[in-house]
Design a protein around this nucleic acid. Structure first.
Lengths: 202, 202
DNA sequence: GAGCTTGTTGACCGTCCGGTCATTAACTAT
DNA sequence: ATAGTTAATGACCGGACGGTCAACAAGCTC
């Protein structure tokens, strides 16, 4: 009466493998990540991994998409439905959202995309369509709304929502490269918001 | 009377190999770059490459350092020696410098560092010491000078020179990932400078 | 032009790794 | 219990790739 050597868990395997893969890709990057290592961390054999994912590249794409998909909607919804004034929303929920990104899995995805995007153009398109373009459009719309309400002036910022996010981008890269060096990334983003508001407030 | 099969060119080989390596690393990233490919593009045999560089990793480091070393000093010098007013210098030479970076080899180096920095901490330190910390310190000093001269107020920006550069950072990443998508990166940087000046001018 | 030095070649090696598949054994239906 | 189904294993393969080295030949010296 020994314990079974393994259990069949068809339902959970893809997620477990994908989670393990995220870890390994995050640590090593795509090319240096070993499929054996992923299988090991997921607690399965390499053969099984290849039952659920056709190739290493498919696995990679699945991992990226999985992380991306779970993260965008909350903010966009909040942004559409808030009854705060534009300024209050920017200073509150939007800033909070930005502060939390550089330490989140999104930062890892960005790193992987920067490193490997070249050879996975469909992945870059996916990320563009599901995250970047939606996020930027939402910020633009939001500023426009502020203009319509008479809270903001109509400046170049309306058409350059990237300005709001650029310190967040820099903070992400900073943490990726210079984890040990000092930088108050929160303060960086706060100050940018402060400047933008000062610049566009009516 | 046949032409010799090769010429001895001890002096030029390291540079030629290093240039070829830059191309290949830029196209493929570190792990996916093939030493054979580098040798082929440099017009030498793999054996010769290994005479000048001990390992692939040493080659990589040499390439990064070579690109970095040739690029920093001009701006820092101009910044120290200019007799323009602070505002004029920012709107002129500094902005020009920033605009030109995202399309330069520096952007490639950044991409490689983001992708591979993890496993080459000494390379990250090198980049930090020779480029980032010097550049940021120079900008900080410059703003302080403006404050001393009464041109600027003393704001949080003095201690956050990253704010000046963050749209440049975003522009670099944007071009790396989304070459095809529209973004007026020049306008992005101009607007940031505009906002900062409006924010800190006395 | 003979002989020496050394820059250069390219075939070769050992290892590693993505991907395969015959075999096994956990579950299921009866 | 038994037989059938299929989730899961892990040994294995072929090719690729970083790195080596014995042989070669370009250029120098006399």
């Amino acid at each position: 009466m020994t314990a079974p050597r393994y259990q069949r868990r068809k339902e959970d395997r893809p997620r477990e493998i994908s989670e393990a893969a995220f870890e390994v890709f995050a640590e090593k990057g795509y090319a240096a990540a070993r499929v054996d290592e992923v299988a090991k961390r997921a607690g399965v054999s390499k053969g099984l991994l290849y039952l659920y994912f056709d190739t290493k590249e498919e696995l990679f794409k699945a991992v990226i998409k999985r992380v991306v998909t779970r993260r965008i909607d909350a903010l966009l919804l909040a942004l559409e439905e808030t009854d705060l004034s534009s300024e209050e929303f920017v200073r509150g929920p939007l800033l909070e959202f930005m502060k939390q990104i550089p330490g989140s899995p999104v930062a890892v995805v960005i790193r992987l995309l920067i490193a490997e995007g070249h050879r996975h153009p469909d992945l870059v398109s996916y990320y563009w369509e599901n995250v970047v373009s939606r996020g930027l459009a939402a910020i633009s719309r939001f500023i426009e709304r502020g203009v319509e309400r008479g809270e903001f002036r109509d400046t170049a910022v309306t058409g350059l929502p990237q300005l709001v996010l650029s310190p967040m981008m820099l903070s992400m890269i900073w943490r990726i490269l210079f984890t040990t060096r000092e930088l108050d990334t929160d303060r960086l983003m706060e100050t940018q918001i402060e400047m933008i508001l000062a610049y566009i407030k009516a």
